[in-house]
Structures are given as structure tokens and as C-alpha cells.
Amino acid sequence: MKSKILLSCTLLLLILTSVNLYAQNDEYYRPDSLRKEAPNQRKDYTPTDTNRLAEKRKEVDFKQLPFKDRLRAGGGFGLSLGTFTNINLSPMVGYELTEKLVAGVGVTYMFFKQRYFDSYSYYGGKGFFMYNVIKPVNLIAELEPLNVVGNYQKRQWIVSPMLGAAYSVPTGGRIAKAVHFTLLYNLNYYNQVDNSAGPAAAITNLSPYGSPLVFRITLL
């Protein structure tokens, strides 16, 4: 009797073992797309894979941004009162082409008034590119045409190509995202000399900045 019970238990154990081995072999040879995974099994990623996934997700998210969320708006304003009055208005609009590159345009208006002399104004526009190198630093390329007053109150256009950099401080705003402390170099500064009235006028500088170095504080 005991031997029959022992034999029955042995056969049952063999059957269960065979079924389990077959199930494991069937799972092993199943294609990856159909292979079962344990509910609590965690898939490990290397740091490189994790970074790539994060970068890909970030790139996809940026490409899906609507037009209005890529827009920036702001500009600069300057005011000096006294014996010499100087008012400078420069609204600007930018668009984020990529996460690092912003392209934009602006309008410039300058009003000058010196006591006992006539007042005059400069006006024009600008186009610019701003590229983020590292988090607080941006490289800037700008082209600014201005209509200025030369000798004998004759108006003329000058064009100033400028290169420089900006230190940017985020504002947390949606449209005006940062304050930029910008230093530019005017590549055409020394050619902006009005010599139409002879040697005596050769020292007349048509540039309103008074130096090839141009410092600005803008919001964009």
C-alpha cells in the first residue's frame, strides 16, 4: 500500500516538473515581442540610455510647441535728461528656431536734444541671431541699419554689423524670458565718418553710440 502511494506521488511530481520545464522552454523560444514579463520585473537602463531617452523626449516636446509658445517679446529703453537729452526706444520680437537659437527683429528710435541747439532723431531697425553657448551666456550677431543726420542736416543711412555676447538672467516670464546684459562690437564703426564737407568734417561720427563698443540691457 505504501509503495503504491509512493509511486503515485513520484509520478505526479514528474508530471508537474515536465509541464513546468515545457512552459519555460516555450517562453524562452517565444519571439521577444510575445515573450511574457513578470509583473514586477524592472527593466534596467544604463545612464547613457537614460540620457538619450531624456534628450529625445525633450526634443520631441520642443518640436510640438505651438507658434505662440516660441515667441519672445521685449526690447530696451534708455533715457538721459539734462543739458543733453537722449531718449532711446528699441522694441524687439524673437522666435525660438531651436532650443538654443533665437532669431528676431527690432525697431530703433533715438531722440537727441542739446541745449541751445536743434533736436534731431535717428530711426531704423535691426535683425539678430542669439545662440546659447552655456546656460547664462549667449553669442549675438546683429545687423542694424539707421537713418541718421549728417553734415548740413542731411539725412543718410548707415549700416552697423555687430558681434558680441550677452550674460542672461532668466525672469521666469513666458514672453520676456530673460534680461540680457549685452556687449557688442560695431565692425563698421570707423567707416561711419561723414567727410562730405571736407577735412574739417572728417571727425564727424555718424554713429550714435560714440564708440565701437556698444553696451545694452534688453529684455527678451
Rank of each mutant, 00 (worst) to 15 (best):
A103Y: 11
N88R: 14
T83Q: 14
F117E: 08
G106K: 00
V60P: 03
V137C: 02
E142Q: 15
S121N: 14
G94P: 04
E55K: 13
D69P: 03
K58Q: 15
E142G: 09
Q114W: 02
D49T: 12
R72L: 15
A54E: 10
Y109R: 05
Q114S: 13
E142R: 15
K58W: 07
K135E: 14
P47G: 07
F117V: 06
K113T: 00
R70W: 05
E55S: 14
S90Q: 04
I140G: 01
Y123C: 02
T48C: 03
L53N: 10
S119K: 06
V107K: 03
V102M: 14
L97V: 15
V102E: 15
Y123I: 00
A141Q: 04
F77N: 02
G125L: 08
G74W: 00
F84A: 10
L81S: 12
G104D: 06
V93C: 00
K113F: 03
E142W: 06
K113W: 06
N86K: 12
Y123Q: 00
V102H: 12
G78A: 10
Y109L: 11
G104V: 09
E144W: 08
G124E: 04
V107G: 06
L139Q: 03
Y131A: 11
T85K: 05
L139S: 01
P47I: 06
V93Q: 04
F117K: 08
F111R: 13
K100C: 09
